[in-house]
């Protein structure tokens, strides 16, 4: 037991040092990478390491006679979670969400503290000590709280009484937008009607010229870090024919038209992306094109922001209706390229 706990303690100390080091810039902030797309899992994993570490640490301190009281353990843990959420997660999450997680943590810690009578007594003893003001330190603390609580509440109440907009800062109103609205049954592009359920990308074809997703799936980039093309499947090979040649042509169109917003790596961080709100779609995110059918992308690309239904906020989207700039063939090739470059398979109807 002791061996296990000491391992935990070491883990806890190291993890805390790494975290603090990264946040205060002592060691490079990229020492432990945040892996794009796997962040929630990574957060949970890291937090469980910390919990295990703290358990070990508290056990070791206890056996060395330096017990940290229940009260401070609870306070310390809540403070740690808030600090972790604020400093570690990137891009930062808004205050309201942090407050929510903080409250949940507080409730959990409270339940832990009051799980049995003895712990509960230990937990509330420091509070009662301050209220009784038996020692000069407790007396001082009592005076501090007697003044600080009404003052703090005054500020809080002031904030809620200030007329809207008069405060030092005003946040933009929260408007929830549907990123992937329901598509229409069919769409008409350059005079031709495409039924979304039955249409297929004419360029997703095998050497025999037949629609073949299994064939193309073997030639897309590898779904590993970097998402590099397969060996011997270079669209830039002068001898590339069929599917790979179409990928290259789609890529050329993408890099002449789309990368300005969707980015050189299709992650929505293009040259102009910073100016726009909502930000451009990130195709490397498993929640975008990986979840959609190719015909859905074809519809979205052809009709752009103007073609969105109300819940998709057509007024705010700078996505062009690409039928104004590209031919039907070019649009299909761009769609082909987007799946190739991200390494995702389009969803099918069956």
């Amino acid at each position: 037991m002791k061996a296990l706990m000491s391992v935990g303690a070491v883990v806890g100390v190291i993890a805390s040092l790494v975290l603090l080091g990264m946040i205060f810039g002592v060691i490079p902030a990229s020492t432990v990478h945040l892996v794009e797309g796997y962040m929630p899992m990574q957060m949970l994993f890291e937090l469980s390491i910390f919990v295990a570490g703290f358990t070990g640490l508290s056990y070791m301190l206890n056996s060395m006679g330096m017990t940290i009281s229940r009260f401070w353990q609870g306070i310390g843990f809540v403070a740690f979670i808030l600090f972790y959420l604020k400093s570690r997660i990137y891009p930062p999450i808004p205050f309201s969400v942090r407050a929510m997680y903080g409250t949940v943590t507080m409730v959990a810690v409270f339940m832990w503290m009051s799980s049995n009578e003895e712990d509960w007594k230990k937990f509330r003893q420091p509070i009662l000590n301050v209220m009784d003001g038996l020692t000069p330190l407790h007396k001082g603390l009592r005076t501090f709280f007697l003044i600080a609580i009404p003052l703090g509440l005054w500020g809080f109440a002031y904030q809620s009484f200030v007329p809207q907009g008069a405060g030092a800062d005003v946040d933009e109103p929260i408007e929830l937008r549907t990123v992937h609205p329901a598509p229409p049954a069919s769409t008409k592009v350059h005079g031709k009607t495409f039924v979304l359920q039955t249409s297929q990308n004419p360029y997703r074809a095998n050497p025999e010229g037949k629609y073949d997703q299994e064939y193309s799936n073997k030639l897309i980039v590898e779904q590993s870090m970097g998402r590099l093309m397969q060996e011997n499947a270079n669209p830039w090979d002068p001898k590339a024919e069929g599917y790979l040649k179409n990928v290259r042509e789609g890529g050329e169109i993408f890099f002449q038209n789309c990368h300005f917003c969707h980015g050189d790596n299709l992650n929505g961080r293009g040259l102009h992306a910073f100016a726009f709100n909502p930000i451009p779609a990130n195709f490397t995110d498993p929640g975008t094109i990986a979840q959609l059918q190719e015909t859905f992308i074809f519809w979205r690309v052809s009709k752009g922001g103007l073609g969105l239904p109300r819940e998709g906020f057509p007024w705010a989207s700078v996505m062009p209706p690409w039928e104004q700039h590209l031919t039907t063939d070019e649009i299909w090739k761009v769609v082909l390229f987007e799946y190739w470059h991200t390494g995702y398979y389009p969803r099918t109807w069956d």
Partner: peptide, 22 residues
């Protein structure tokens, strides 16, 4: 957002609340 001037009530009510807390 055109910021409104701050009315007197904005100071009065929180003060009442703080006195109540005391």
């Amino acid at each position: 957002v055109l910021q409104p001037p701050i009315p007197k009530e904005t100071y009065i009510y929180p003060t009442l609340i703080a006195v109540g807390i005391v």
